[in-house]
Design a protein around this nucleic acid. Sequence first.
DNA 1: GCCGTTTTCGGCCCGACTGTTTTCAGTCG
Length: 581
Amino acid sequence: MEPAQCDQHSVTNAQIADTFDQIADLLEFEGANPFRIRAYRNGSRVVRDLTESAATIIADPNRDLTQLEGIGKDLAEKVATLVRTGGLPMLTELLERVPESVLALLRIPHLGPKKAAALFHQLHIQTLDQLRAACEAGEVQRLKGFGAKSEQDILKGIPQAAQAADRLYWAQADEIAAELLAHMKTCPEIHQIQMAGSYRRGRETVHDLDVLVDATHVAAVMDHLGAFSGVREVIVRGETKMAVRLQRGFQIDLRVVPAESFGAALQHFTGSKAHNIVLRGMAKDRGLKINEYGVFRGRKRIAGRTEEEVYAALDLPWFPPELRENREEFNWAAKGKLPALIELTDIRGDLHMHTTETDGKNTLEEMVAAARQRGLKYIAITDHSKRVTMANGLDAKRLRKQWKAIDRLNQQVQGIRVLKGIELDILEDGRLDLPDDVLAEADWVVCSIHYGQNQPREKITERLLGAIEHPNTSAIAHPTGRLINRRQPYDVDLEAVMRAAAKHKKLLELNANPMRLDLDDVACAAAKAHGVYVVLGTDAHSAHDLDKMRYGILQARRGGLTKADVANTRTWPQMKKLIGR
DNA sequence: GCCGTTTTCGGCCCGACTGTTTTCAGTCG
């Protein structure tokens, strides 16, 4: 293979998408045509959501990136340039005109591209520090379009922009949402209440919470939100819309609408934006108009009370919120083939958990009891192998001892099968952490990379392929190793991993830990496209961690997975057949 | 910059709120 071809695969879809997003930011700053900006953001989303790498598509003489909706001749060429050279002249030119540091200004609330450009061009402000100084000197309020109030707002917003606010894990947002709903439900003026936004779509991280209320006494509802514990400030409060910030910086948006608009508003505020834009276009084609108040023909409202009604007005099925990303959902709907997404109750077994034998907090017996209580029909005990010394990982002797205990336990407990498993480390040199004869005795071997995560792409990929090809392994745990907000995924050719997994009938895990959720949604869809079954595991380190399965379910649903696509919706004998054991 | 059975130009989703305006631009979702 020629070196140039190796290079071709080193630019990931995510990197291409990030480049397009940066171009969009810079173009916006320059006041470019908004639709041109949208085209780049759209292109970013399309590339990011691909179930195979753009490089693979380019390398295939029978295919062309322009076949993708939203990628035209120009963007296709830019992708090709990025893949070929790793860079893009257009971005270089943009950055010569607008320094990258200026984009930090856009993170200040209420400071958009127009005002940021005025600050840059008229006051030559390039950094947050320079902006603070200009505000304190009273220079900003003298600019056209600015005033004393906006100068104060900018000063207030600079610290917020400086601390790169992480999005919350969905699980954290879920806790706040539960508290908020409990609080709001004590307001007697509220007839209906629903959470919307990316929280409702089950995104792995959430930036703010959107609360939608059907009520007639708007002021009472807004007062009630203002009284929610932890509200630090009211950001806006109008006739129908209110936004507050909590102590920890998290924002809550409230909208109050009448009952006849509740479904339309729920649809509108659930998004995603990309999904809604397509929807509006479809309405327009039919001479209709959609907004948060309903679907209208002329001035007549023809739908709005429920979401089902809104979608039906466009001859569309109701879409599960997790699918509303303008990925495949409209194509599926057109063919009448919306997938029946997996549900928590479909799960029969959990095949990744730890005990006090390594770094778990509960004993084998306690984990089994907790799993049984949750209605699981089988579980695999997968403590760490010996390489993970920090977790007191198991050598062959201790592992066999644990397996004897499992054999005894299986004689005693009813209604659940406990499998003899191991979370087996793939060592830095690619060898597996336990000898073959031990692995041959296991029911379930899930392989992980914990060490040597910074190795180059070829090495990491080779290690994973080795584990997949080994006859006694079952699955790869958290296949990219990413920790949301904390650690980047390791550099791995996931497509090669998926091809190998399909060939050798091995499973890829979707780890349900809310910090991992790895595979992510796009990778789940890719696994399905490659004919690989996904296995959901909680990676529980305590009994109550078994409840984390629902986070994994959300991610699987976002990936469009059905009950059939997820291996552990089957009985254990069926699953064994699936992996050819 | 994308797109196309009203096609190769002229469209491109829609509305709330605020501050600086004196009828609206900018920001946000």
